[in-house]
Each structure stands twice: as structure tokens, then as C-alpha cells.
Design a protein around this nucleic acid. Structure first.
Lengths: 141, 141
DNA sequence: TTAAGGTAGATGCAAACGCATGGAACTCAG
DNA sequence: CTGAGTTCCATGCGTTTGCATCTACCTTAA
């Protein structure tokens, strides 16, 4: 068992513990955490996002994401427009209602996150961001 | 947006990227990653594990885990015994076949993990283990 | 121009999931 | 000892997921 494997196992455990904790909190309203994640990813990009691009940030298969977007469109939270210039593609964006919903849930959730990470020192939080950034391949050529 | 929130988002992204990467690798045989996770958790404990205890380490609802154990029992990988002393409870352990399957998959998977974390320095790996350990509440009161 | 190969997203279908709930066993106050 | 409350795991049921596949569109090269 290498150090790397121990570290990854520890990361998975932390992820599981915190996700369960967040999921148990009563802030999600009509959304599941996965649905919120989709709204959040969309809220970060002002320009409409491609489905395939969104799929890279969400832990869901492409068909599952496609259908989740269906439901979010049907509920009036997300808009699906054909992409000029690539007519296979789809461009996704939040509706005003979607943006509002994201914010309403995001606020208390962000506080939960801050509280959960308050066991770390500011230095540790900075280190965590750097390390996970490298793992996600942020600075890959 | 606090530093803590940025760090958590970065952790989630790293988790998503690496999980997708691992999932795409051709090492899982007849198992899903979630099923492997259950076998792995069981492989770490020599004494049979309670379902509720196992559930704390796996990102699954209790009914979903109960049924996944059903399937693993049916496939001869896990054994379910009644718990003496608490007749509500169940004690889970790997069968020899389950242990073998876990090892056969675990070996190449562990190499993948090591490779994925090789972008980090040894110091960063050590820091990551410490930080995620704190997040998972390892050293709580 | 057109045929071959690749990519984006949608859909059929069986398997797996979460929520709500159920029964059985444990705990503890009276 | 008994009844109320809790914990542990299983089950019914509607929803969501992943895999395989499909169609439509883009790209490249002859």
C-alpha cells in the first residue's frame, strides 16, 4: 500500500462523509444534489455551455445527463438552444428561474461547506486547493 | 466565494475527473466500481462488518447497499451471517472467491491510482492524506 | 463532390437507485 | 415486566441510471 493509495482512499472517504453530510442538510428544496450541481456548473458560465462540456464536470453518463437536462428544461430551470455553427450541438443556459433557484440553494449550501472545512487551517485550505487542482489536471499543457 | 468553497469545488472536480478516468480503465471485469468499493471495504476488515457500518464508508443509501449485498451474496463473493448478540444485525464478510476477486482487481487499480497521483510531490501526497483525514473527521474528539 | 470515419446528443431497455415504510429486535423508564 | 421509542435491515414502488445503439451532422481526403 503506497502513500499515494492511502491518500486517495482518504480523499474518497472525505468525499463520501461530506457528501452524505451535505445531502442530509435541509437546503435542497425540490432539487437533488446532482441537479443542483448541474445548475451550479451552468451558473458559473455566462456563455451557454455545450452538453458534452457540462458532462466533463458532472459525474454522470452522457445519456443520464441528457435526460436530466430534459427534466430541468421541463421544469423551466434550464434552456436548451440549438448551437449555430454546429447543428449537432446544444447550448445550455439557466433560465432566470433556474438562476434564482441556484442562488437560493447555493447560499445556505456554501455556508455548510465553509462550516465543514472550518476544521482546516487557512494554510491547509490553500494547500488542498492547489493539490486537488493539480489532480484535476488544471495546469496540464 | 470563500477560499473554503473554492477548495471544496476543486476537490469535487478532482474526484469527478479521477473517478471517470478510473472507470474508463479496463480493470473492473464483472464488477462495477461501486461493487468493487464494497469488496474493498470488506477486505480491509478481517472481522465481519455490520451493514450499517459498511454503509458509512460507501456513498449509497442503506436500501441500495442492502440490495447490492444481496447480489454479491448471490454471486458468491460475500457472505451474510446473522449477528450473535444482536439478532437484528447482519455480519458481512468476503468469501474466498470474493477476496480473490478483490485482489485481482485491486492490484491493477492500485497502480492506476499511483499513476494518477504521480503528478503530486511526496510532500503533497502526505499533505493531502492529512487534510482529507481531518475532513473525514478521523481525529474528532 | 462524395464516401469513410468521427463526434454530439437522443432513445430503448434492463438494472439499480432513493424514499417511504415494514417487521423484528434492542433499550430503558416506570 | 411492560410499553414507548429506537435501531437494524429488508421490501414495495416509482424514478433515474448506464449500456448499447441510433440519427444527424461535421471533417477529411481522394
Amino acid at each position: 500500500m503506497t502513500r499515494a493509495n492511502e491518500a486517495w482512499e482518504s480523499l474518497m472517504k472525505a468525499y463520501a462523509v461530506l457528501m452524505k453530510q451535505f445531502n442530509a442538510e435541509d437546503v435542497w428544496g425540490e432539487l437533488t444534489m446532482r441537479e443542483y450541481d448541474v445548475l451550479y456548473q451552468l451558473s458559473k458560465c455566462d456563455s451557454p455551455l455545450r452538453l458534452s462540456e457540462l458532462n466533463r464536470h458532472v459525474l454522470l453518463s452522457q445519456p443520464a445527463l441528457s435526460r436530466m437536462v430534459d427534466r430541468l428544461v421541463e421544469r423551466g430551470l434550464v434552456e436548451r438552444c440549438p448551437d449555430q455553427g454546429d447543428r449537432r450541438g446544444v447550448r445550455l443556459s439557466l433560465t432566470p428561474a433556474g438562476r434564482e433557484t441556484q442562488r437560493a440553494i447555493g447560499r445556505p449550501h456554501a455556508r455548510s461547506v465553509t462550516r465543514a472545512l472550518s476544521v482546516l487551517t487557512p494554510e491547509e485550505i490553500a494547500q488542498l486547493a492547489v493539490i486537488t487542482g493539480k489532480l484535476a489536471g488544471n495546469e496540464e499543457k
